[in-house]
C-alpha cells in the first residue's frame, strides 16, 4: 500500500515537527534525579500506561494527538500499554478525584520496581483549578512522587513530545552513568 499524498506531505515540515533537541542541563539534572531515586527504563522503547484521573479530557486528547503522524510520539519509540505491570512509565493526566483514587492507587501498586511516574497538565501537578474540592484528592503527588512534571492546561502535543525526548535522553545518560560506575 502506498502512503496517500496527504500523509506523505504531512511528513514534511512544517506540519510535522521533530522534537526539539533536549536542553543538556535539563537532561543532566533529570538523569541525576533518576539515578538517585533508582528509576530505570530502556530509553529506546518506553512502554507507557496512561491514566486520566478524572479530568476534562483535554490533556488526554493532546496526548493522543501527540501519537499522530503530525507529532510523532511513536517515532520516539513510545508505545502505550494496558497493564501497568508491563509499563516503564505511568503517565497521569487530570486531577485524582476521590472516586478514581482507589483505581489509580491500584495501578501504581502494580507498576514494576523502578518504573517512572509522570504528571502531565496542571491538574495532574496539584489538582489545578479543582484543588480544594470535596471530590478531589489532588495531583499525582498525593499517591506517588512524580519524576517529571509537565505544566499546561493542556500542554500542547509538541511539549509532550519534547518532554519525552528529554526523558529518553536522561534515561540514556543515567544508564550510561550506571554502566561506567559498574565498569
Amino acid at each position: 500500500m502506498t502512503l496517500p499524498r496527504l500523509i506523505a506531505q504531512a511528513l514534511r515540515p512544517p506540519l510535522t515537527r521533530r522534537p526539539a533537541a533536549p536542553e543538556r542541563t535539563e537532561v543532566m539534572a533529570l538523569a541525576a534525579r533518576l539515578a538517585a531515586t533508582g528509576r530505570r527504563a530502556p530509553p529506546e522503547a518506553l512502554a507507557v500506561r496512561h491514566i486520566d484521573g478524572g479530568g476534562c479530557g483535554g490533556c488526554a486528547m493532546e496526548l493522543a494527538a501527540a501519537q499522530g503522524l503530525a507529532h510523532g510520539l511513536a517515532a520516539l519509540g513510545i508505545r502505550f500499554v494496558e497493564d501497568p505491570a508491563a509499563a516503564d512509565v505511568l503517565l497521569l493526566t487530570g486531577p485524582v478525584t476521590r472516586n478514581m483514587a482507589p483505581a489509580v492507587a491500584r495501578a501504581i501498586e502494580r507498576l514494576p520496581p523502578g518504573a517512572l511516574v509522570l504528571a502531565v497538565g496542571d491538574c495532574a501537578l496539584d489538582g489545578g483549578v479543582f484543588k480544594g474540592s470535596y471530590a478531589v484528592l489532588g495531583g499525582l503527588e498525593t499517591l506517588a512522587r512524580p519524576d517529571l512534571r509537565l505544566p499546561g492546561c493542556p500542554p500542547a502535543p509538541s511539549r509532550v513530545v519534547d518532554a519525552f525526548a528529554t526523558l529518553i535522553a536522561a534515561l540514556a545518560q543515567a544508564g550510561a552513568g550506571a554502566g561506567q560506575e559498574r565498569g
Binding site: D52, G54, G55, G94, P95, T97, N99, M100, A103, V129, F130, G132, S133, Y134, A135, V136
Partner: peptide, 11 residues
Amino acid sequence: PGYAHRGMLGL
C-alpha cells in the same frame, strides 16, 4: 458514572 466528578458546581 461518577469517576470524573470534580465538584464543579460547588467550586
